[in-house]
């Protein structure tokens, strides 16, 4: 009862309520309220995440398991960043309220938190992002080796669209007159045709399918057909 029926009722009731609320001017703002609650809930739930992170890494360090030194680095950087941010160490006062210590911006570049953000966190994440340039190349290379028509379509389209964005496109096909009947062979024309007609159509159909899929999935949840995460035993 408490473990299955009530959660299912909560789920169905909250779902139906929000669907109905959307249609009345008196209740349309409920969705915003609920999303606001969710943000608070997610922030409170950090306790779970932090607890897990500490538990896992402390266990590695205390048992001197393989890689414990890295776990120690994780723990230390976590603790340092946490303390820097929570106590706003080195934060510049708020010009309007310099007497209130915690009124300063926690992210200001002069603070310890801001320093770690700018010189540790940010370069690390943007380099991780930059690795994608290499992965895009290796993925294209792999698709190149596939011998079926789908892979060829994908790769040749990617090639046309890519080359049309560079000077290479103009260099190779720029000499074809725009008013001739072969103008569609120009890379820039092909790119426009592909992106504006085919890609738009493809994305539209994908989006329509996804919308129906999301609607059906939501309905399955509200109707209680899909309850795998609710049953603990």
């Amino acid at each position: 009862m408490l473990r299955r029926t009530i959660p299912m009722l909560i789920l169905a009731a909250s779902g139906i309520l929000l669907v109905v609320a959307y249609f009345s001017p008196f209740t349309t703002s409920w969705s915003e309220t609920v999303l606001g609650w969710f943000n608070v809930l997610a922030a409170v739930a950090f306790v779970l995440g932090a607890g897990n992170l500490l538990a896992v890494n402390l266990e590695l360090v205390s048992a001197r398991r393989a890689g414990w030194a890295y776990a120690l680095i994780t723990l230390l950087s976590f603790a340092a960043m946490f303390v820097f941010g929570l106590f706003k160490i080195g934060v510049v006062p708020n010009p309007d309220h310099p007497n209130v210590y915690f009124a300063g911006d926690y992210e200001s570049s002069q603070s310890a938190f801001g320093w770690v953000y700018e010189y540790i966190f940010s370069p690390l994440t943007s380099t991780m992002f930059a690795l994608l340039a290499f992965y895009v190349a290796s993925a294209a290379f792999r698709a190149f080796r596939a011998k079926n028509i789908e892979a060829i379509l994908l790769l040749s389209t990617a090639f046309i669209v890519l080359i049309a964005q560079t000077a290479g496109g103009m260099f190779l096909t720029g000499w074809i007159p725009e008013d001739s009947m072969f103008a569609f062979l120009r890379f820039d024309w092909m790119k426009v045709g592909i992106t504006e007609y085919i890609q738009t159509a493809g994305m539209r159909a994908i989006t329509i399918g996804i919308a129906l899929g999301i609607a059906a999935t939501s309905l399955r949840l509200i109707l209680g057909l899909d309850k795998s995460y609710l049953s603990k035993n």
């Binding site: 989006t207 399918g209 059906a216």
Partner: peptide, 20 residues
């Protein structure tokens, strides 16, 4: 896209879910 969203219902094999 939609295949992914239908996957859990497909995998469950339940009549209700397949019907959906």
């Amino acid at each position: 896209g939609e295949e992914f969203l239908a996957a859990s219902a497909y995998l469950s094999g339940e009549r209700d879910q397949l019907g959906s």
